[in-house]
């Protein structure tokens, strides 16, 4: 999953040398529009639609590690 996310951030969002703890906004200019676009891509990776609550949770994300933690929680939640 980490590789997929990094590939998306580099190819689609044109991140230069992303670090897992980089601040998405400050270090890569990632904004609210990007967040919405990324959620669409995440839905495609996961193969299901996110709920409104799940999407709102995503707005707390600040780093790539936060994205990976977020995905893990979503997948665990759905598995239960």
């Amino acid at each position: 999953m980490q590789e997929k996310i990094l590939t998306i951030l580099v190819q689609d969002f044109e991140f230069q040398e992303p670090g897992l703890d980089d601040n998405l906004r400050d270090d890569h200019g990632f904004d609210s529009i990007d967040a919405i676009e990324l959620l669409g891509k995440i839905e495609r990776i996961l193969g299901f639609s996110l709920t409104r609550e799940e999407k709102e949770k995503a707005m707390e994300i600040r780093t790539i590690n936060d994205i990976l933690d977020y995905l893990e929680r979503i997948q665990q939640g759905r598995a239960q």
Binding site: I33, I36, E37, L39, G40, E43, R44, G47, F48, S49, L50
Partner: peptide
């Protein structure tokens, strides 16, 4: 696909 439908978002509108 439901995911395709839900992908319509703010960016498309803008």
């Amino acid at each position: 696909l439901e995911t395709e439908f839900s992908s319509i978002g703010a960016v498309d509108y803008l």
